[in-house]
């Protein structure tokens, strides 16, 4: 084996480590960069669930109609009156059934034990011990925002 051949062999070996290191570094940077870009990509239009949160559009609910939405792991009931939208927890304060809106009587009714609440969430009759918790609502450009 000549000296020249040995030399070549060595260069190729050194190159091998060099290439692995260079490729590895490139892969590392790419591996750090792409998840970071993905992270920065807006996931939702809304951003973190804080402050006022958009839950529905006014057009979704007819006047004197209602809609149930889920916010922060719990159900809310939205009720639209001619001049505004109200939001209450949809969880009955009695045993935790989900309440419904009775548009003919204009009352919130719990189907389980006939608990009745008025348009301010107060108990009219039946077993519920407390009023339904209510939430602040704002309507901007036809979008309903609820503050948790």
């Amino acid at each position: 084996m000549s000296a020249g051949e040995r030399q070549e062999d060595k260069i190729s070996r050194r190159d091998f480590f060099g290439w692995v290191i260079k490729g590895g570094l490139l892969a590392t940077f790419a591996g750090m960069l792409f998840p970071a870009l993905e992270y920065l990509l807006p996931v939702t239009r809304r951003g973190p669930a804080v402050g006022m949160k958009e839950v529905a559009r006014v057009d979704d609910i007819p006047v004197w109609g209602s809609k149930k939405v889920v916010l922060g792991g719990s159900a809310l009931i939205l009720i639209r009156t001619p001049d505004k939208v109200k939001a209450f927890s949809a969880v009955c304060t009695h045993l935790g059934c989900l309440v419904d809106w009775e548009d003919k009587k204009r009352e919130i009714i719990c189907p389980c034990h006939a608990g009745l609440f008025d348009l301010d969430g107060r108990v009219i009759s039946g077993p519920p011990p407390r009023a339904l918790p209510s939430y602040a609502v704002r309507v901007v450009d036809g979008n309903i925002f609820v503050e948790l």
Binding site: P35, E38, P48, V50
Partner: peptide, 25 residues
């Protein structure tokens, strides 16, 4: 810092958002 919000009302929620919603957050 891109998602964190340093206020009493939002700090916890924004960290939760980072941990649950944001990709790889």
């Amino acid at each position: 810092l891109f998602y964190y919000r340093p206020t009493v009302d939002e700090a916890f929620e924004s960290v939760k958002y980072i941990m649950t919603v944001a990709n790889k957050g």
